[in-house]
Design a protein around this nucleic acid. Sequence first.
DNA 1: CCTACCGATCGGTAGG
DNA 2: CCTACCGATCGGTAGG
Lengths: 198, 198
Amino acid sequence: MARTQADDYTEKRVAIRQKAAQMFADEGFDRTSMAALASACGISKALLYHYYNDKSELLYDVIAGHLSELCLDVEQADDETLSPNDRLLSLILSLLDAYSHADNEHRVQINALKFLPADKQESLKDMERELVHRFCNAIAATNPKLGANKAILMPVTMSLFGMLNWHYMWFRQSGVLTREQYAQMAMTIITDGTENLI
Amino acid sequence: MARTQADDYTEKRVAIRQKAAQMFADEGFDRTSMAALASACGISKALLYHYYNDKSELLYDVIAGHLSELCLDVEQADDETLSPNDRLLSLILSLLDAYSHADNEHRVQINALKFLPADKQESLKDMERELVHRFCNAIAATNPKLGANKAILMPVTMSLFGMLNWHYMWFRQSGVLTREQYAQMAMTIITDGTENLI
DNA sequence: CCTACCGATCGGTAGG
DNA sequence: CCTACCGATCGGTAGG
């Protein structure tokens, strides 16, 4: 009987992807050689190329897997029956929680997405835009006047993303603040901070 | 008479540094070859090495020049005779203004500082810490209770830096918001947003 | 013995 | 699933 794809093909791809995320995050995309990645995975470089046709496909997979997980988590956390502030808090918490479980992938997304060819970047940026759009709506719900002023709503939303995406640069698990406390702080800064903005 | 160092030695170094900042920002540090940089400067690679002993010295100079300019500008903008809110606004404005005149250098600082050897990173991180410290003090002045709570003051300050350092990712000169308006918005978000935080 | 500058090429390593 | 290679390009340096 002809051999078909190995049963564990997908699992092995996932293992490679996770190791790649770690090395891309630690050393940078350009500085991680395919040979070093293969060695770290305990396989030959030729076998690595059996699972991934080229290096950029691997980078794409790392970021795409991360972003689709992010979109899913945030979508599930988006509960419109909550009060506007609690709804926004739930979104922020789900984002920070997803980041904490995918710290390597998050750093790769932030630092290496630009190394992808333009067309591959676009589908990933679409997912980023979906995330931004969901946060936009939740912020708008906390403040009707702000929600009606798209020209101000966008910079406010990007300010929140700046806070959250910058988080990994300084936040330490062992610090004085828990992730939950920071989520609460970020929510309060955005809602109270924009209350009298317009 | 014996020849000494050319009069325009320093100017030529500056020109090389600025071109390097542009290419490092556009293409990434690792993807900018010394040969391509020399070519863009209209000089030979050997002459490029006459001005800079190696590639990492060039990267260091780009970031160090930017950060020392930043520290200087922000120091001059720090006017303690202003009201606390106006003082913070002045700091934010000077930072965004410096960023706008050194967009390439800013992007290199954010994306490529990690490629420097550890010891060279430290002196640059010292300058970053000096900046953070100045903002910390200004934020503390806007809110006595916050100023007395260092454990909360630090995350608030890092939130502001997240907003400002993320700015280049989405802000466009032609957008609906001017840089001055965004500075005002950032100041308000931080001051109003932290008013009832503790 | 200095600085300024060139064409050619070094030893290693990249992705494939 | 491997070793053996490739075309190209890297950062850096030679002699003059």
